[in-house]
């Protein structure tokens, strides 16, 4: 990751929607009086979700005003965490894990697909559908390689399945969240190899018999 700056083109203003403001007030109320700054990360997070997944300057200042913090303190938080985007992202924002376990399992092939289909990192495609960025470990190493698209994890990828995933997203088709190779969660690929007398047969665990039932729309609202 390199130096992060606020986007050049900034909206004139930012205002929380009434629902989000009510939600934020409930978050602030969790903390003792005078300690409302503790809500800065939830506040920024909500502001980002409300604003097409990126934080404009006015949102940072709004959060600071609500929480009674100097602007620089909120800017510090917003620039520290890579989960806060300071520039516009695509409708589908792909955060690709490039840390060691994913790389050993073939993340470089996924990176190539991103470069070919989406373009350079942190650049939104012309149609506004996609952008991508390489991030550090997202904590799904047993399902490596993986990406996070908006709020959802897509795991056990290879170049083909990832390419198909992008096709599905672009076409608005429903996608399957989680492992893309038929694996259930992080259980062994191809069925249980241990404790088989307890699990697997009764449907509590093991590979799903009906893949279609597992299809869900990919993060409908952002």
């Amino acid at each position: 990751m390199s130096t992060r700056r606020l986007a050049e083109n900034q909206p004139e203003s930012f205002e929380f929607t009434p629902e989000n403001r009510a939600w934020l007030d409930a978050q602030i109320a969790k903390y003792p009086p005078g300690r409302q700054q503790s809500a800065v990360i939830p506040a920024l997070w909500k502001a980002q979700k409300q604003h097409d997944y990126w934080l404009p300057q006015k949102a940072i200042e709004k959060v600071a005003d609500i929480l009674g913090m100097p602007y620089i303190r909120v800017l510090e938080v917003a620039t520290f965490y890579s989960m806060f985007n300071l520039e516009p992202v695509g409708k589908y924002f792909v955060q690709l894990c490039g840390t060691t376990p994913c790389l050993l399992r073939g993340a470089d092939a996924i990176i190539r697909v991103c470069q070919e289909r989406i373009g350079p990192q942190r650049q939104v495609t012309g149609d506004g559908m996609f952008s991508w960025a390489e991030v550090e470990c997202l904590g799904a190493c047993c399902n490596a390689p993986m990406v996070q698209i908006n709020d959802d994890y897509y795991e056990d990828l290879d170049a083909a399945s990832f390419s198909k995933l992008l096709d599905d997203l672009a076409a608005g088709r429903p996608t399957h969240i989680g492992p893309q190779n038929g694996r259930l969660r992080s259980e062994p690929f191809g069925g249980l190899t241990s404790l088989t007398e307890f699990y697997g047969a009764d449907g509590k665990s093991g590979p799903l018999s009906d893949m279609n039932a597992a299809h869900q729309p990919a993060c409908p609202e952002k």
Partner: peptide, 11 residues
Amino acid sequence: SDMGMIGRGED
């Protein structure tokens, strides 16, 4: 509170 440290790590 004029000054602050933005970014993280080596950035």
